[in-house]
Amino acid sequence: MSARMASRPIGWPRRVVHVGLILVALIFLVLFLLLPLATVFVEAFREGIAPYVAAIRQPEALSAIRLTLIVAVIAVPLNVVFGIAAAWAMTRFEFRGKALLGALIDLPFSVSPVISGLVYVLLFGAQGWFGPWLEAHDIKIIFAVPGLVLATIFITLPFVARELIPLMQSQGSEEEEAARVLGASGWQMFFRVTLPNIRWALLYGVLLCNARAMGEFGAVSVVSGHIRGLTTTIPLEVEMRYNEYDYVGAFAVASLLALLALVTLAVKTLLEWRYGDEIAAHAPGGH
């Protein structure tokens, strides 16, 4: 392995230190990050391809996949609209309580996933605020799909807004003002100037938001009730199979999520590499 500092020539003792540091870092990355990832695929295919395919084609797995997609398809667009609205208000206007709003947007990141689920149980559960009313009207939120969607929205709420706010802050509002002076209506300004300027950051935010929405476990676990085929998303299906000692089945379904993670990482890296300046400096994303 060849290590070299950017420009100046260095003596061999320092070279040894560099190579040593690099080796320690890489060994850590391999043992600690790469190995768990590899385990997932190795365990999934332990008994060959046929059991793997069979594990995924079980009806429970298929319904879990469908439910995961449904939850993401509802939660992600809602958080995109929220993210754009919040970023627009935060970066284009001055108003009292702006800092508070910013802290509020970040709040879901510093709350334990279990608590994120818990709050909805306390709100809509049988003993919750709206529990009796919901029961009287025969509406089910907790232990049903709406609860899963709500908990997922809560968990993934900051992603899009947090990508957009620093970028729109650094871009400033001159281009939008120019569009107004040139006669553009509000929506023309938004679709012809604002949106093209933030498109890559938006995609980046959507990517992270979606990965989290599909992979969320703790919050969803609390509100799901674990009804097989009805309220289990892929991560919950993984848990149930694992607890039933169906390891091949658990890792087979988990491999789908691991694949999603790999695709997310690949697209994310590509976006950072290709459109780095249009995504802007952002804080590390995500809980």
Binding site: R4, L29, L33, G218, A261, L265
Partner: peptide
């Protein structure tokens, strides 16, 4: 600070715990 083969790959790998769903990380 250092340049070595596969640096980009390892750099991307750092985000794995963000991207990998917690249940999957847990069983792995």
């Amino acid at each position: 600070r250092y340049r070595f083969p596969g640096r980009r790959l390892f750099d991307a790998l750092v985000d794995l715990p963000f991207a990998l769903p917690t249940a999957v990380a847990g069983i792995a």
